[in-house]
Design a protein around this nucleic acid. Structure first.
Lengths: 250, 250
DNA sequence: AGGAGTTTGTGAACGTGCGAACAAACTCGG
DNA sequence: CCGAGTTTGTTCGCACGTTCACAAACTCCT
């Protein structure tokens, strides 16, 4: 059963289940039903059961799941029973926060090196680690057997960092830089883009506002100004069908 | 056309397209084909065209898309032509980084207040803003018409912050705290979970390396207990949200 | 003007994911 | 031991998302 392929959507939810199970364990709960766990994780209980069924039959009908046991099974499936050395490149504001982030240092992941291309921060200590130059990447990767790299540089340097990472053998990259990385086949990149998340929220917010409820006056006022600003920058627009222009909206 | 519903998967990709278009614009490119834009965004060109077709017919057959015009259309659809005041709660390492993050202050989003429940940071200035107490939330929201809140507190305080936000009228929350928030119908929450992202990478990495198998089930339970003790000492980790896959295929 | 080349927008096929419903399997009380 | 109650694991139908393939529409060259 462990050999079977697990759907990507399920994989993405396993960390959530794991977190909920950890919370239950710390609260002293030893057993839980699929409904309880599902509510704690914010998903449908049928979906939870189907997700877990991909790992194996770790529950007991009529009873539920043993928190400690299920916790271990999920952790093993994800690979958290082994230690993953991680290197962080780009120790600006975000990199600094990541280095101090407890989620990185606990639970299977261990930050083994902080690298920065900017010489001014060299030697500085963050979260108990000395900031080293980016050129030390090969050495660090070889020494600790790093396979996961975190990029927290500005967008301009991210691709070069990624290339160097791939060259040293890193095959999984977590990218915080606001850019799309191009990597060879076989290398996984996951992107965490704060501004994209905000934009998605804004889209839905705009939808809500357009619906039944009115906009606060302050927002409405700023709307007019902002439209002008963006239009001045963004619209060299010459032709184009005026058919579906902006007017239709609210 | 603007009134039609846009699929969620498409909405999640629009910010990526917008970013690619911005890069092209800054590089002086005035026109691009769906293939060029798709490659810059890291997606299939057919998918790109279908996504854009949900907004309207903004391309020209045989030619491609006008960068500036398409850029404006996407920005308008997302709602970036208006100004979104944002309040950030929890000015620890992460909140500090967010406040300084250029993606927050530019392009439609404006951080209007930094709040923290911890009194020791009060009055401190970060990114040109004075840190205020969490109790000022109502006042700040009312004054600036805030509808988007960012939570960067530890997991323990996140739910209370969310409750207070909802009470003041905030309907969109970006949650960096490693916990699942419970909110009323009509409130959108997006989770950004750094540790979940790492765990997803670890899963795939384990797959690539052939994956060492886990321990026998007999030992599993006791080991889970041990692992948990360790985790209990360290602080909890972070969270991520639903959604988009990474740039690389797998 | 007309044909060749290019590129968009979309219809159709395919795969994936989700939720409801239900049989199988367990516990518990008598 | 048996029946009632509970909860898992799975099957099925449906909706959503992705990719292919192609007609429509545009430009360019002769």
């Amino acid at each position: 059963m462990s050999g079977a392929r697990i759907p990507e959507a399920t994989v993405a939810r396993l960390p959530v289940y794991l977190r909920a199970l950890n919370a239950m364990h710390e609260a002293g709960t030893t057993t839980c039903s699929s409904l309880e766990l599902a509510q704690a994780a914010g998903v449908n209980s049928a979906k939870l059961r189907k997700d877990l069924s991909h790992l194996g039959s770790y529950g007991t009908r009529g009873v539920g799941y043993d928190v400690g046991y299920l916790r271990y099974q999920i952790a093993r499936e994800i690979g958290l029973t082994q230690d993953w050395p991680v290197v962080v490149v780009g120790i600006g504001n975000l990199g600094h926060a990541l280095a101090n982030y407890s989620g990185f240092s606990s639970r299977g992941f261990r930050t083994v090196a902080l690298l920065d291309g900017d010489g001014t921060r060299l030697g500085e200590h963050v979260a108990g680690l000395r900031i080293r130059g980016f050129d030390d990447l090969d050495e660090v990767v070889a020494e600790h057997g790093v396979v996961i790299g975190v990029i927290a540089t500005p967008a301009s340097g991210a691709q070069e960092v990624a290339d160097r990472m791939v060259a040293t053998g890193i095959r999984s990259i977590l990218n915080f830089a606001p850019t799309i990385l191009t990597v060879p086949e076989g290398v996984d990149v996951r992107r965490v883009d704060l501004s994209s998340e905000l934009q998605i929220l804004a889209y839905h917010e705009q939808r809500k506002s357009g619906g039944e409820r009115g906009l606060p006056a302050s927002v409405a006022h700023e709307l007019a100004e902002a439209v002008d600003d963006v239009a001045a920058v963004a619209a060299p627009s010459t032709e184009q069908t005026a058919g579906q222009a902006a007017g239709a909206r609210r």
